[in-house]
Design a protein around this nucleic acid. Structure first.
Length: 881
RNA sequence: GCGAGAUUAACUCAGUUGGUAGAGUGUUUCCUUGACGUGGAAAAAGUCAGGGGUUCGAGUCCCUUAUCUCGCACCA
């Protein structure tokens, strides 16, 4: 092993080794239990960001852990064509480079460009994933627009169409005037923007009266086809049935009564624009109002809008308001912040628009998806997201799935050019079943990108074919993804799968949060606060990044990215590296397995006991998806127990003359190290594999069937207790010495005056630990106080007082201070325990074990307090005289 | 408006059936001990947002208030 931890020196090599040996391959293997994760396919819009790194780290931890446990672990990778997002990006890039537009290119040329974009970014993404250490079965890599996925999409579309769950209809849809496509409700983001309330007078026909309406969107008045008031509104009910004249336009508008209108809001009178507002659309349907559209697909005013024709909607707004004012129709303008819908891709304000589109009927599909969560066949971690999931499904509206884009799955609907027949089929029909016509044209539109993503868990495993993979690996074990795409993706996978297979596509959904910058802001290109995972890997290594992402955070919560934490993780890797280097150097060849012949010392028993406890805890935590807690436990065990205590205590025997003892300590050192590598491997795969392969006598990789099983026989409460005594004694001696500023080189004799025989015995039996770790020159049992020299400081542990004759080095003022502090602490403890035990309720109701523990503490603390007080008195006397 | 989350040490966050508050970073002091200064030792540092309640006992359960996020739905 290199003397320096340098991840760059081995991470790529190790990864290549894994792939060359086919270590990530999963096959249909009836002898093993499958564990399956299908990767949420990253969009091919660009490079991976820190959010992907988090997502993939969590998945890789789970996959690697299960693989170590002996499961047939399949992590199936792939990428998503990301219809709208990619189309926007590709067009932007072409426009920037060549100044060409979508229309300049034409559909075929555009698609050619998009595919080459996909090839380029697909490659980049795979390489990034490999850098991170993602252990995917690359032979099974898929793409949402590959042949298999295309088949799945067509099959599913036809299936739903035949079941009457897909229909085409003229509805008010969300339109992005910039992307020039429809959007589903889920794709519209609401943003609060400052706006105004314009109060406008609408003259009533054949009278001098006016009806005052209030609107935030005056430009849409050009498409008004009615005015509504609440039928219970005493101010206006007499007007119902009468007619308004639309200012500037002159169109007659019926005044209708509809309880939708809020009496308190605005003026209580509402202009109704069915073709530009979802609520107005509904009102219009109820009252048979005309639907007039006043805009083009780019949100400019349409040609029949007179002087306003061709104006952008906001420009039109200004001009129109001026005209209203000039005409005396404008009553007042008030500030009115309100939420507007925007496109989730380009953030252009959505224009509701009536259009002939394809929809998925949601009612029948939503119910099974609700049931599957209620029944427990699908479990969301953390479960607080159940509400989000259910709430959305319970209020779901039909899903608009057609998009006026080119990049995506073209809708498998064919229109007969001779009659109005629509044929939904896998391929273009030859003859029209209705009219016998032979000319068909395929629908120009493509499907919502999430329509194909919804099939991802099974389309990737072969559906609609009945493949062995599908029956073995599916349903999958867990879906790991961000809570931000529950609506877009998770729910759609669930109802699609239920519709097709009747089963939930995964047993668990494990949700994580967003990665934010160190100030808690969303990482974004526009803010420029994104951190490139590759740069971090380059600087600190993939293991450090992974460890950082997996810790310091609990499931479902956002994670602030802090370089300091990556650094801390790197330091941990470095610690492990050096500890391993030390152990491996000490081994000096193969040492064999630990056997009953080996004479274990207290430290051996202790570390083995701690190790086995940790194995159980870590396994349980992983089972509960508490990856952060599991990682922390490994960190703690490795650094604070193995390195800080065990290795330090092992040195004495390692450098000693006793050959048998030497072999034993080597075996324990190695056994624990190996288990550390096993436990840590899911989190830090590279360094653990690299070290593993450096172990003498190991041939083969760490990658599978290596998860340790806790050995209950090795758990020793007695050893842990005894070791606790030793550690406490050592800490206390170190503390005393540090307070006196005594350098470690200055050794001191240690006199043990025991009040508890058992404790005294432990201290004396293990006295060499005090020599090794607490700078004691020798440890001697004192029978009485008289044997203790006057110029000594004492370290008090329960059951014994340890005297260090430091003579002239003792600063009695400091010692007094220290003892006073100690005294205060113990007094507080005694007080607390005493009052607790004096509490009748506690004694009557608390569990017996707890009461016993408190009683023990009472005795212990009282005794220790007494000792400290005696010492304090002595020191005070010394200072005076 | 409905829902969720957050509020714990200077900072970032853990805290699993209620049983004397933890980590990392930072701070202070000391240590060139033969794995590691990306290190070792010691220390200081918290009324667990406020208020009520249940309980022998509450960071943890219930109610409530405040502040901050984030979803969903919106009154035109």
């Amino acid at each position: 092993m290199d003397s320096k931890y340098n991840p760059k020196a081995f991470e790529d090599r190790i990864y290549d080794q894994w792939t060359e040996t086919g270590s990530f391959k999963a096959t249909v293997n009836p002898d093993k239990e499958p564990f399956t994760i299908v990767l949420p396919p990253p969009n091919i819009t660009g490079q991976l960001h820190m959010g992907h790194a988090l997502d993939q780290t969590l998945q890789d931890v789970l996959i690697r852990w299960r693989r170590l446990q002996g499961y047939e672990a399949l992590w199936l990778p792939g990428t998503d064509h990301a219809s709208i997002a990619t189309e926007v990006r590709v067009l932007k890039s072409i426009e920037e480079k060549e100044g060409l537009t979508k229309d300049d290119l034409g559909r075929d040329e555009f698609l050619r460009r998009a595919w080459s974009w996909r090839d380029e970014y697909g490659r980049i993404i795979v390489n990034q994933m490999k850098k991170l250490g993602s252990s995917c079965d690359w032979d099974r890599e898929r793409f949402t627009m590959d042949e298999g996925c295309n088949q799945a999409v067509t099959e599913f579309f036809i299936k739903l169409y035949e079941k009457d769950l897909i229909y085409k209809g003229n509805r008010l849809i969300n339109w992005c005037p910039d992307c020039k496509t429809t959007l589903s409700d889920a794709e519209v983001e609401h943003e609060e923007k400052p706006g105004h309330f314009w109060h406008i007078k609408y003259p009533i026909k054949d009278s001098d009266a006016f009806l005052e309406i209030a609107t935030t969107r005056p430009e849409t008045m050009l498409a008004d086809t009615g005015v509504a008031v609440n039928p219970n509104d005493e101010r206006y009910q007499h007007l119902i049935g009468k007619t308004c004249i639309l200012p500037l336009v002159g169109r007659e508008l019926p005044i209708i009564g509809d309880t939708y209108v809020d009496l308190e809001f605005g003026t209580g009178a509402l202009k109704v624009t069915p073709a530009h507002d979802p609520n107005d659309f509904e009102i219009g349907l109820r009252h048979g109002l005309e639907q007039i559209s006043c805009m083009n697909d780019d949100a400019t005013m349409s040609e029949d809008m007179g002087k306003y024709a061709g104006m952008d909607r906001y420009e039109c707004r200004k001009v129109l308001v001026n005209d209203l004012e000039a005409g005396g129709y404008l009553v007042k303008v008030k500030d009115h912040p309100h939420n507007v819908g925007t496109c989730y891709r380009c953030h252009t304000v959505i224009e509701p628009r009536i259009s002939d589109q394809w929809f998925v009927k949601m009612d029948a599909l939503a119910k099974p998806a609700i049931n599957v969560l209620d029944s427990g066949d699908l479990k969301i971690v953390p479960d607080r997201f159940n509400k989000v999931y259910l709430n959305w499904l319970e209020n779901i509206r039909d899903w608009c799935i057609s998009r006026q884009l080119w990049w995506g799955h073209r809708i498998p609907a064919y229109y007969c050019q001779s009659c109005s027949k629509i044929v939904v089929a896998k391929e273009m029909p030859d003859v029209c079943p209705d009219c016998g016509g032979t000319h068909f044209k395929q629908d120009d539109d493509v499907l919502d990108t999430w329509f194909s993503s919804g099939l991802w868990p099974f389309s990737t495993l072969g559906w609609p074919e009945k493949t062995p993979e599908l029956s073995y690996f599916y349903p999958t074990s867990v879906l790991v993804t961000g809570y931000d795409i529950i609506f877009f993706w998770v729910i759609r996978m669930v109802f699609s799968a239920l519709e097709i297979t009747g089963e939930s596509p995964f047993e668990h959904v494990f949700l994580h949060g967003l990665v934010r910058d160190s100030q808690g802001r969303k990482m974004s290109k526009s803010l420029g606060n994104g951190v490139d995972p590759l740069e971090i890997i380059d600087q600190y290594g993939a293991d450090a990044l992974r460890f950082m992402l997996a810790t310091g955070n609990s499931p479902g919560n956002d994670l602030k990215f802090q370089v300091e934490r990556v650094e801390a993780s790197r330091n941990f890797a470095n610690k492990l590296w050096n500890a391993s280097r030390f152990v491996l150097m000490s081994l000096d060849g193969e040492v064999g397995e630990l056997s009953p012949e080996d004479q274990l010392t207290l430290a051996d028993e202790w570390i083995l006991s701690r190790l086995n406890g940790a194995v159980t805890e870590i396994t349980t935590q992983l089972e509960k998806f508490d990856l952060g807690l599991a990682a922390n436990r490994i960190y703690e065990f490795t650094w604070n127990e193995y390195c800080d205590w065990y290795i330090e205590l092992a040195k004495k025997r390692l450098y000693g003359e006793d050959e048998a003892a030497k072999q034993t300590v080597k075996r324990v050192l190695l056994k624990v190290l190996k288990d550390i590598l096993r436990l840590l491997h899911p989190f830090m795969p590279f360094i653990t594999e690299e070290i593993w392969q450096s172990i003498p006598g190991i041939d083969g990789m760490l990658i599978r069937d290596q998860w340790p099983i806790a050995d209950a026989a090795m758990i020793s409460e007695k050893a842990e207790k005894a070791m606790d005594v030793m550690m406490e004694a050592i800490r206390n001696i170190r503390n005393v010495r540090a307070e006196m500023n005594v350098v470690p080189a200055r050794k001191a004799k240690c006199l043990v005056l025991a009040t508890d025989e058992g404790i005294g015995e432990i201290l004396m039996t293990q006295s060499e630990y005090l020599v090794t770790l607490a700078s004691c020159s020798e440890v001697v049992m004192a029978k009485t106080k008289a044997e203790v020299p006057e110029d000594a400081v004492s370290a008090i542990v329960y059951g014994a007082e340890l005297f260090l004759p430091l003579e002239d080095l003792i600063d009695f003022e400091k010692e007094k201070e220290r003892l006073e502090k100690e005294c205060k602490k113990l007094e507080d403890e005694v007080k607390r325990v005493k009052s607790k035990l004096a509490n009748q309720g506690f004694v009557a109701k608390a569990p017996a074990a707890l009461i016993d523990a408190e009683r023990e503490k009472e005795v212990k603390f009282t005794e220790m307090l007494e000792q400290v007080r005696v010492r304090l008195t002595a020191v005070e006397a010394k200072l005076k005289g």
